[in-house]
Design a protein around this nucleic acid. Sequence first.
RNA 1: GUGGCUAUAGUGUAAUGGUAGCACAGAGCCCUGUGGAGGCUUUAGCUCGGGUUCAAAUCCCGAUAGCCACCCCA
Length: 460
Amino acid sequence: MPRSKKQVTTKKKYAEKAVKDGQATGGQPVKRSASSKTPQLLRGFKDVLPIDQKYWDLIESRAKNLAIGFGYGRIRLPILEETQLFSRSVGKDTDIVQKEMFSFVDAGGDNVSARPEATASIARAYNEHGMINWSQPVKLFYFGPMFRREKPQSGRQRQFYQLGFEALGSAEPVIDAQLIAIFNKFLTQLGLGELVTIQVNSIGCVTCRAEYKQELVNYFKPKRKLLCEDCKKRLIKNPLRILDCKEASCQSILGEAPQILDWLDDECKDHFMKVIEQLDQLEISYNLNPYLVRGLDYYTKTVFEIWPKEKLGSQTALGGGGRYDGLVELLGGRPTPSAGFSVGIERVINLLKEKNIEIEEKNVPQVFLAQIGSQAKTKAMKLLELLQDEGIVVAESFAKDSLKAQLELSNKLKAKYTLILGQKEVLDGTILIREMEGGVQEIIDYKKAVDDLKRKLSMT
RNA sequence: GUGGCUAUAGUGUAAUGGUAGCACAGAGCCCUGUGGAGGCUUUAGCUCGGGUUCAAAUCCCGAUAGCCACCCCA
């Protein structure tokens, strides 16, 4: 009997569906073409769903703690800036500025861009708020989305989050070392310490880098035929980039190439040596990488990146940074030696997931509040707020009426206790409290429920 | 930006020209006030648009998206 009944309903549903789809209307089939009408994510943009929040929460709270510990104050910077801020700082010939920015002319005719990174904004803010009059160095940290219109891959999105620490107003090598130490500590606290390597190099100041560049060109020019096509272009555009080319033919002639460290002037060399000494003192292991070059124009002297030991796709760096002694001045301020680093949050999360690093689930409710019957439901809604006011993390499912379904949910949410409030309890002025693990439950006075629960929870 | 690979319920996957199936998740029942096990029922899908064919999830073309390599970068 139930079977035939169900068949009827099923047939009915099909009929309804057919009508909806236009098949039974006798006319043209109505095409749903859902995807053309359903709004979709923009290319390279992603939603972060509740299931992943634990990673984000963890990263942000670790960053905040480190910031407090090392004296970095949070700064929240705007997403949009004048386009020229980036062309002047990041470099107008860099790929980031030339082809990767979300730039547009707004309704008022201003040229604006979604920020592709935050250091330029930091320097702008330093000047704009007269931070030169604050006690130096000014230490700032930020956390927020950046935008680059690249072809997406895993670990490379058009909107991605960066966390950054910046110290402005000190030329001391200890600043460079401390930034590396913070970066390292951040990853270590996330359980990634053993899985990454720190790459360090110095690219000198404007003067000695120019000399080195010339030297590099002089070296490669006679060997031009041995270089790959890209590197032939780099020879003119950005000879430093030849150093990290992946082509075997280019790699093979790198060995004899002049090394930047030999061309640093006395001051730059001295600075770098001190940074290295500091790192040794701090017992931070690092890899001196003479081929490490960073893509943004404003870097000087110390540069560093942190790489996973096992390469994840073609994206090597989890993050990187360095010194940018000329940036503040370049943007119209006083000479202000500075340094900083930024971390790609999605890349860090990818690594955490890849290595199955366990993250404590923080949003486990302590108590689940179940109800049976409409009177009980109303009363439970009030109780819910009482519990919340006492700071108890409580879950509920007022939309479900069956106790069974509510207990199932309580179990799934891993609540320690379930409060059960039914018609009987409402009349008696009581409430049931069930300890989920053992299934023991007791009847208690409704008025004492909150206190009783608090006692039970604080005892565990 | 260049080149390559891929696209099936919410998720993970089968079916290779001929009836779209399975697992998990969701809803419901077995059990009308008691979760974790089991059984049953059910919801939900061929990315989109063209073409070839009697017939396309399957073959071809295009679009889109994801991934991979390059470029570049976090």
